[in-house]
Write a protein that binds this DNA or RNA. Structure first.
Length: 472
RNA sequence: CGUGGGGUAGAGCAGCCUGGUAGCUCGUUUGGCUCAUAACCAAAAGGUCAGUGGUUCAAAUCCACUCCCCACAACCA
């Protein structure tokens, strides 16, 4: 019955600091992983960092740091951030790791039948040393605003990956749900994009891109992001020298909706070229908005996740982002919503429930002779299996509220006063059992809190010395 | 005519696929309780379900058109 489960997160580009948005990938993967662990599966969760490319090279130069030193520093920041979220990963991959680089080159070689050399022609700015899009060209009337120079038509050679060879196969995999795309409504979008997807350029001349993995067998070319970054999901497992069939195909790959297309088109094409199975599920989550808008430095509405974590703690952060930020759609973050959720739901509903029930048990010397077995309600399991974490979390909360209601209905304090001890014992048994189930269901979402609750109601019951969530 | 998503009580959302008394959470008002972190429970107020037309005995739900918002359009989570 026990299965081997592999879960992946997107690897962020490390030219900046960790962002609230990055947290979504990690949290969703962590919840998923902890859930499967709780039902007895063996779980591997990958995380990592994308560290090649010009932007990083330039940023390091600006800061006067050796490039490797710069990415080392930033990779560390992301690792620290993930730990602060209470997320437990088993594998961490960095694209500048020589092992990854060597594996990527081997992957390239194995894909060779589907790679060809071709010319790219476009507008180029000699000042910026980069190609610009047609749209940009039009907006700037053909003159670079930074350098006051006219754009030039330039032709360069790139290697291309022949995606067209795999389109039909990918389409079939999507339609047959062999590779399930969640949420469902994104499927249509991807199928449409699949039709239009041209072959993808996967290398750049060395003069243009120095910080990257060299193309095997061609000193003049360096790999562009796709092959290098997307491969991380399997190089981290040891592919190609190791047999990865224990954990691959992945049970779920979590990505932001903005990069779903690459994971649903280029990535499957790569896997097919390598003769590997496709991931079972691609879960694309929405973006976190700040006061109704996309976060952006120019608007100045960027939320610093570290600040929120410092102020409210890991579980409160997890609570808000897992329950009030929709798993699939964009959702708005405001500090008022966060405070409301914290005070009303964590402190009042859950924290207070634990407190009042534990106090009653303690006063009446209630405890279980034998620890009862915990069974998850079907509804919860179904939602978790469908990656509907927010809804599963909502379901848990209905149980929290039901427990509060049950206390009010049954009025255990009256039973105690009137010395109706059998009835009291029955009510407390029921309530404590309810709460034990709640704490187990809560484990993937709020591991720290869930463990505290489990501890409170194990053996001799005493209320927690410190409130679980002190009101603020 | 780019593609996709959305417009439902003050706010945030569910319901729409599989038509049949409009539901949840927060907020507001009132009442109850006292075990508890002045927490908890209950009740009430509050909606012409963006608009127009169509199909139907019946439409938030299906169809057509219109208006408005958002995201994406080769890497800015």
């Amino acid at each position: 019955m026990s299965e081997k489960i592999y879960i992946t997160t997107a690897i962020p580009y490390v030219n900046g600091v960790p962002h609230v948005g990055h947290a979504m990938d990690y949290l969703l993967a962590d919840v998923c992983g902890r859930y499967y662990e709780s039902i007895g599966d063996t779980v591997r969760i990958q995380a990592g960092t994308d560290e090649h490319g010009n932007k990083i090279f330039q940023k390091a130069k600006e800061l006067g740091l050796p490039t490797q030193e710069y990415v080392d520093k930033n990779a560390k920041k992301f690792q620290d951030f993930i730990s602060r979220l209470g997320v437990e990963y088993t594998d961490f991959v960095r694209t500048t790791d020589p092992k990854h680089e060597k594996r990527v080159q081997e992957i390239w070689t194995r894909m060779k039948d589907y790679i060809y050399l071709s010319k790219y022609e476009g507008w180029y700015c000699t000042g910026c040393e980069r190609f610009i899009t047609d749209k940009e060209y039009e907006e700037n009337n053909g003159v670079c605003p930074d350098h006051q120079k006219s754009y030039e038509k330039l032709v360069e050679e790139n290697y291309y990956f022949r995606i067209s060879d795999f389109k039909e196969r990918i389409r079939k995999a999507i339609l047959s749900r062999e590779m399930l795309i969640l949420p469902e409504f994104r499927e249509k979008e991807i199928l449409r994009l699949l039709d239009e997807s041209p072959d993808v350029s996967i290398s750049r001349p060395r003069e243009q891109l120095t910080w990257g993995v060299p193309v095997p067998g061609d000193d003049t070319q360096v790999m562009y992001v796709w092959i290098d970054a997307l491969s991380n999901y399997i190089t981290v497992l040891g592919y190609p020298e190791k047999d990865i069939s224990d954990f691959w195909p992945a049970c779920a790959q979590f990505v932001g909706k903005d990069i779903l297309r690459f994971h649903a088109i280029i990535w499957p094409a790569m896997l097919l070229a390598l003769g590997l199975p496709l991931p079972k599920t691609l879960v694309s989550h929405g973006m976190v908005l700040s006061n109704g808008q996309k976060m952006s430095k120019s608007i100045g509405n960027v939320i610093d996740p570290i600040e929120v974590l410092d102020k409210h703690g890991t579980d409160a952060f997890r609570y808000f982002f897992l329950r009030h930020i929709d798993t699939f759609a964009d959702s708005d973050y405001t500090s008022e919503k966060f405070e409301d959720a914290y005070n009303n739901e964590l402190a009042n509903d859950l924290g207070n429930l634990v407190q009042r029930l534990a106090t009653m048990c303690s006063k009446n010397n209630f405890m279980f002779d034998d620890e009862p077995a915990i069974v998850f309600p079907d509804e919860y399991s179904e939602l978790m299996n469908e990656f509907k974490f927010k809804e599963a979390f909502d379901f848990v909360w209905t149980k929290v509220q039901a427990a509060n209601k049950k206390i009010d209905d049954k009025k255990p304090w009256i039973l105690a006063k009137e010395n109706r001890l059998d009835e009291l014992d029955e009510v407390l048994t029921e309530l404590v059992l309810d709460l034990k189930v709640v704490s187990q269901m809560l484990l993937p979402f709020l591991p720290e809190t869930a463990n505290k609750i489990i501890e409170v109601f194990a053996g001799k019951i005493e209320p927690p010395k410190e409130p679980l969530f002190p009101k603020k």
